[in-house]
Structures are given as structure tokens and as C-alpha cells.
């Protein structure tokens, strides 16, 4: 998209033109989504975060400094929204996995080529706390001090989360070469899900009976 075209779209969005908003949204959709996808646990969460981010873009458009690249501004908003989202939902996330520190003997990564979908799926499998730190450190290039301030955690927690994230990812990368043997895991998940649903339903029924 040309610079003039972009300025025209921004001007249209400032006038709350829904058509221009959609054009801008569409133009930056892929870029914004690529950021949100790696911070989120799945595609739906990512879309939620991205829309919250775009809402900030649309409502704060008059604050955008036109001397700087627009895409960088959007990217920063998406990242901050992702971090905020993670922070506000901290109470809902898995904070820790005790087996995360388990040591595996293979330090070397396989040479096989992993595509984008595989990699993003691996990142998304990380617990929220690990994923956020890994993104901020490994992808965005922040220091542990900066991450600690951003997330309101200690640098020690940041380092430990990064370590655990790497361990888990390495594990996944190494195992990705093998034949997937996930049927047992799936069965486990199903059992846990059925258990949770039945407990919730019994609680609901109890409440209704009350």
C-alpha cells in the first residue's frame, strides 16, 4: 500500500468512516494477526486480542505521530495489547508446570525444516506465562529487566519462565521428528473434560434445585 493511500485511509478513519476502517483493518490484518497469534493460546484468542488492538488503533488514531512508520505503531499496539491481555487473564492461566524443568539428554536440535504452522502451534502450546516471556525475549528482543517491568514480575521469574519455555519448545522440536503418539494424551484430555463438565453440571443442577 502506498504512503498516500495509507494517509487517505487514516484520514477516513479519523472521520469514523466505517468503509475506511474496514480497509485499514484488512490491510493490516495479516501483520497484526501474526503478532497476536504467537502471544495467544489459539486462533480465537488471537482474533480477540487483535480486535482489541484495532479498537485502540481506531480510537487513538489522532495520537499517531505521522513522522513515524504506521506499521511499527500498529505493531507496538498489538504487542502491548497482547501483554495486557495476558496480564488481565493471569488469574485464568496455568502458572506453573512442575515437570517443566525436567532435563532431557538431547541438546542438539534436529536439522529438519519446521514450517510456520508447526512453530506457531508449538509456541501456542506453552502456558501463558512462558509464552509471553519467550515472545518478549526471543522474538522481540527485550531484556529480562524490561520484561519484568512490563509484566509486573521479578527478573528471576522472567529468567525461569524463559528457561522453562525453551525446555518445553526444545522438547517439542525434538519430538516433532517422531511419529505423533498423542492418542493417549487425547484420551486423557477427554476424560478430564468429561469430568469437569459433569462436575459443573452437577453443581449447576444443585444450584437449580436450591
Amino acid at each position: 500500500m502506498g504512503e498516500a493511500e495509507l494517509q487517505q485511509l487514516i484520514a477516513g478513519c479519523l472521520n469514523h468512516s466505517r468503509k475506511d476502517q474496514k480497509m485499514l483493518y484488512k490491510a493490516f490484518y495479516g501483520f497484526a494477526m501474526s503478532i497476536c497469534l504467537r502471544y495467544a493460546g489459539n486462533r480465537y484468542e488471537a482474533a480477540e486480542i487483535m480486535n482489541q488492538g484495532f479498537l485502540k488503533v481506531f480510537t487513538n488514531l489522532q495520537k499517531y505521530d505521522t513522522s513515524r512508520p504506521f506499521i511499527a505503531w500498529v505493531g507496538r499496539i498489538m504487542m502491548n495489547t497482547s501483554v495486557d491481555y495476558y496480564r488481565s487473564n493471569l488469574k485464568l492461566s496455568l502458572n506453573d508446570d512442575l515437570d517443566a524443568a525436567e532435563d532431557i539428554g538431547h541438546n542438539e536440535l534436529p536439522d529438519q525444516k519446521l514450517n510456520y504452522d508447526d512453530l506457531i502451534a508449538m509456541v501456542q502450546q506453552l502456558p501463558n506465562a512462558y509464552r509471553t516471556v519467550f515472545n518478549l525475549f526471543a522474538i522481540e528482543g527485550f531484556s529480562h529487566e524490561e520484561i519484568a517491568t512490563k509484566l509486573g514480575i521479578s527478573t528471576g521469574t522472567s529468567k525461569s519462565n524463559l528457561f522453562k519455555a525453551r525446555e518445553k519448545l526444545k522438547n517439542m522440536v525434538i519430538n516433532s521428528g517422531r511419529l505423533p503418539d498423542t492418542s493417549a494424551g487425547n484420551a486423557q484430555h477427554t476424560i478430564v473434560a468429561i469430568g469437569a463438565i459433569s462436575i459443573s453440571i452437577s453443581v449447576l443442577i444443585e444450584l437449580i434445585m436450591k
Binding site: 474496514k22 483493518y25 490484518y29 495479516g30 487483535m50 519446521l114 519467550f134 522474538i139 522440536v173
Partner: peptide
């Protein structure tokens, strides 16, 4: 190397992502 693997593999993924009307 792990960090790099992910950084390279994940960045520049804009083209992989198709626009979805329901998100809009």
C-alpha cells in the same frame, strides 16, 4: 539456536494469514 529457529520461522508470516470476514 532455538530462539533463532523460532524467530526466523515465525516472523514474516503475514502472507500465511488469510483475512476472515467474521473477525471484522
Amino acid at each position: 539456536k532455538l530462539d533463532q529457529l523460532f524467530r526466523d520461522g515465525i516472523s514474516g508470516a503475514e502472507d500465511h494469514i488469510a483475512f476472515r470476514e467474521e473477525d471484522w
